[in-house]
Design a protein around this nucleic acid. Sequence first.
DNA 1: TATTGTTATACTCTATAACTATA
DNA 2: TATAGTTATAGAGTATAACAATA
Lengths: 163, 163
Amino acid sequence: MQPQESVTESLAFLLGKLGQMATGRFADRLAPLGLRPRHCAVLELLATAPLGQLALAQTIGVTPSVVVDMLDELEAVGALRRVRDSTDRRRQVVEITDGGRALALSAARLAKQVDIELLRELDSTQATAVREGLARVAAAQGLPVTGSAPTRNAAPTDPGPAT
Amino acid sequence: MQPQESVTESLAFLLGKLGQMATGRFADRLAPLGLRPRHCAVLELLATAPLGQLALAQTIGVTPSVVVDMLDELEAVGALRRVRDSTDRRRQVVEITDGGRALALSAARLAKQVDIELLRELDSTQATAVREGLARVAAAQGLPVTGSAPTRNAAPTDPGPAT
DNA sequence: TATTGTTATACTCTATAACTATA
DNA sequence: TATAGTTATAGAGTATAACAATA
């Protein structure tokens, strides 16, 4: 089932290479929009409902300070706004703007284009198998449904009793 | 064929997340050996034949200065040695040691273990489909056969008239 | 005292550019 | 002048820790 004897033929290693390549490609496409790949998870999450920053961080599986940066950048592009919560003045609720929704849509189109290029050599059966297989792997490994992956430890499934 | 409407469901994005996760897992396993994932490509390449540093850089698709660092680290672990070329004293031929071969073997075993964990939820048909599909994608995109992926542009085959 | 968001800082990975020693 | 390797530096990505305002 795993016929390779070498690291470079392993799935672990191959995924790393492909991930780097795919992210790079997508980032290039996204650049003209003023976005980077990780921003997309935020936009798509907020498209569903406004969210506080910590909840956001937890959901996409990154640390809060990273969220601050991403929100700064997205706010600079007019894709969202932070609204102080009048009930709890520590909180800021993050809301997507119409511009943000438009960006998310454009980004989704670009991602689809990249996908087509990546899958160029596969027939639709193979492509589907890869897609579904990887989705299953991601689910089994507990990757956040949406959002960028936690780099290392971080058990996002069990954030503990906090909040 | 690409039924998703969102970035976060795209293959491009998914590969990025999975790549990060897989690389992190593998790095954790490798750490006790004093290795990191990228070192493995070097070791496996050298296992075939000694090589000069520039050739090495080109083959695995990274910039020469990165090779210097990696070789320093691998030499510190006793995995290889740099031998000055007596014909052309600018060159250093890099040779793997027995220790290096042993490390490469251990690393391959660890990679295999990680693969098994990653593919835990897939039956062997699906696992094979994913493996073969991804290998095909990698080939189609021109990833270096062995070694870590070039981050972005970098046409290592044609460095151009610059310098 | 705990929590929300922020800033400051550090570490990894990778790249470019300037430098050395040879050729 | 060109090439092999090296060093110095920079940028993107992420994380931890200390801090301010508020609860």
